[in-house]
Write a protein that binds this DNA or RNA. Structure first.
Lengths: 188, 188
DNA sequence: ATCATGTTTGAACGTTAGTACAATTAGTAC
DNA sequence: GTACTAATTGTACTAACGTTCAAACATGAT
C-alpha cells in the first residue's frame, strides 16, 4: 500500500502529498460506509475518520457525490483485480470464484456490503453506472473462458450476483462447495 | 399505540380514517424512495409528498426507521402476492416468473428499484431482514413446484435476483424469452 | 350536549448537514 | 532571502434534519 515514488527524476512533493491525502480520504470513506452505510457518509464523518478537518475533505472532493464516486471506483477496482487474478491463475476458475463469493459471508462481508451499497447507489446516478457494471463484466469475462453460450454466461453472472445477495442477507458463513455447485449448474 | 385492544364489535370510524392515512403515508414514502432514493426519505419530504404535515408523519411512524420498515414491508407484500399468483395460476410458472422479472425493465422499473434500495437497507438493519428474505423464500416456493433438488432451487433464486440486478443496471427493456432461458437453465 | 379518544396542526427545540472563505502553513522556484 | 502555489485550518452561515409538545379539531359513545 505505501509505495513512494521517490525514485522519479523530479517530482513535486506537494503533489505526492496531496495524492496520498486523497487516498486516505477515500479509505476513510470506505470505512464509514462499512460502519454506518452510505447514508453515514458526510464530509464531517469522513474527515473525522481520516483524522483531518471537514474543509480538507471538501478541498479534495468538492461535493459528496465526487467522494462517493471515488470510493465506489476504488472498491470496484479492488474487487475487479481479484477476479482478474482468478482468470489468470492456472487452477479451476469456478472454484476460485466460489471462494471469492464465499468471502462475502466471512471477513469480507463488510467489504461486500459496502460494494453492494454503493452499487445500489449507482442505479440512480448514471455517473456511477459504468463502474458498477464492471464487476459483472469481469465475471462475464471469466465465463467466456468456460463456455461460448451467451445464455450460460448470463446465467453465471446472475448466479454470482444472486448468491452474493443470499449470503449477505443470511449473514452466515457460506459453503464454497454449495456455491460452486450452483455456479457449475449455471454454465453447464 | 392502540392495537386491537377493543373486544367489542362496533367499528370505530376514526380507526378506519387513521389506517387510510397510514397507508397514504406509506405510499408517499415509496414515491419518495422512487424519486430520490432511500436517502431522500425524511419526515418532511414524506409529509410534503403526502400533502400533510411533518408532525403527522411522526404521529403514525414515531421514528424514520418505523417508516422505512413499513414501506419495505408494503412493497415486499405486493411483490410476494404477484409471485403467489404465478404459483397458483395454471400456466407455465417459469414463463410467468420471467415476465414478472422482465417488468423491472419496463414500467415496473421504479418499483423494482425502490424494492432493491430497501432490500439493501435491510442488510444493515436486522429488523428489516426477515421482510427482505420473504421475496427469496417465495421464489424458492415456486421452485419447489418444479424440482426437489435443493441446488436447483438455490440456483433459481440466485438467478432471479441476479437477472433483476442486470436489468436495473442496464436500464433497458428486458427480453422475457432470454430471462426464461436463463431461469430454465437453473432448474434444469 | 358532554365526554372521551383518536387525529391533525403549527411552532419550536437542539443538532447536524453542506458549503464557503479568509487566514495560515509548508514546500518549491528564483 | 522573496514570491508563488498547494495544502490545511478554523470559523461561520444557512438550510434541513428528527423529534417534541401543547393546543385544536373531529368523531363516535353516553
Amino acid at each position: 500500500m505505501g509505495d513512494t515514488t521517490d525514485d522519479s527524476e523530479h517530482i513535486d512533493g506537494r503533489r505526492a502529498r496531496g495524492e496520498r491525502r486523497r487516498a486516505e480520504i477515500i479509505e476513510a470513506t470506505l470505512a464509514v460506509v462499512t460502519r454506518d452505510g452510505a447514508a453515514g457518509v458526510t464530509h464531517r464523518t469522513v474527515a473525522k475518520q481520516a483524522g483531518t478537518t471537514t474543509s480538507l475533505s471538501t478541498y479534495y472532493f468538492a461535493t459528496l457525490d465526487d467522494l462517493l464516486v471515488a470510493a465506489l471506483t476504488s472498491v470496484a477496482d479492488a474487487y475487479t483485480a481479484r477476479i482478474r487474478d482468478i482468470i489468470d491463475s492456472p487452477g479451476d476458475k469456478l472454484t476460485g470464484l466460489a471462494h471469492l463469493i464465499a468471502e462475502s459471508g466471512g471477513p469480507g462481508r463488510e467489504r461486500a456490503l459496502a460494494e453492494r451499497e454503493l452499487a445500489t447507489l449507482a442505479a440512480r446516478r448514471p455517473a456511477l453506472r459504468p463502474v458498477a457494471r464492471r464487476w459483472r463484466e469481469n465475471i462475464a469475462e471469466l465465463a467466456t473462458t468456460l463456455t461460448d453460450d451467451p445464455a450460460a454466461i448470463a446465467a453465471l453472472v446472475a448466479a454470482s450476483d444472486g448468491l452474493c445477495t443470499a449470503i449477505l442477507l443470511d449473514n452466515a458463513p457460506a459453503d464454497p462447495d454449495h456455491i460452486q455447485a450452483v455456479l457449475r449448474r449455471a454454465v453447464r
